[in-house]
Amino acid sequence: MWEALKRLYHRMGSPKWFYEISARWLPWFAIPAALCLIVGTVWGLAFAPADYQQGNSFRIIYIHVPAAILAQGAYAMMAIAGGIFLIWRMKMAAWVAAAIAPIGASFCFLALITGAIWGKPTWGTWWVWDARLTSMLLLLFLYFGVMALQKAMETDDTSAKAGAILSLVGLVNIPIIKYSVEWWNTLHQPATLKLTEESTMAMEMLIPLLIMIVGFYLLFATLIFMRTRNEVLWHERKKSWVKKLIEAEK
């Protein structure tokens, strides 16, 4: 078992192996992702019952909640990939981290936009300083910081290392930021209506949500694979196997 894991780790470190194997894996993520997203969307928008308090406007949770979950998860994954790169000098990990950043930021942005759209009919304004939305906004700032830093560094190596260090510092800070924002929020405006209640949710509403969450995860995996493949090609562009690939394309 341990040996098998070790073998997998060493193989994952080889960009060529990853590039070849990911081409075969990709459909196994992309097709179920499309299925889940279609089924979840249709079910959630057309068949799930309306909320007794919020009416139909609650249906935006089918986009908002999965996007928000992934935005946070993606940051952690980016930081962990960065950590693997810093500790074991595994270049693939750095490229995965670089691939995650813009996707995580996009999900974060999607969660913010859907939150604002939901806010208009519910609160009557596009933006309310609600605890979750504020945390999400700060998370977006964290993503911006990492991406701006990666862009500003001169070499690939320093860019990857700087991004990794900053995302690890951010990862340690996220719980502190979340806690302080929640604390601040209860102090200033105890919100009466929340986009997602922790309380019970009817089964007919919950199941499509779960399907959407799974679909978003699969979509995320698909996107990461595709972007990492691009990163591999770019960084290995001077290696012979990539040159051969390009020759074959021509």
Binding site: L138, L149, A152, V169, N173, W183
Partner: peptide
């Protein structure tokens, strides 16, 4: 992180401000 970057001042603010939020609150 930004010491070697030319005109790193603005970048520094982008990187650090979100981390300052809990202290500010």
């Amino acid at each position: 992180l930004t010491a070697g970057v030319r005109s790193g001042g603005l970048l520094l603010s982008l990187v650090i401000l979100p981390l300052y939020i809990p202290i500010l609150i």
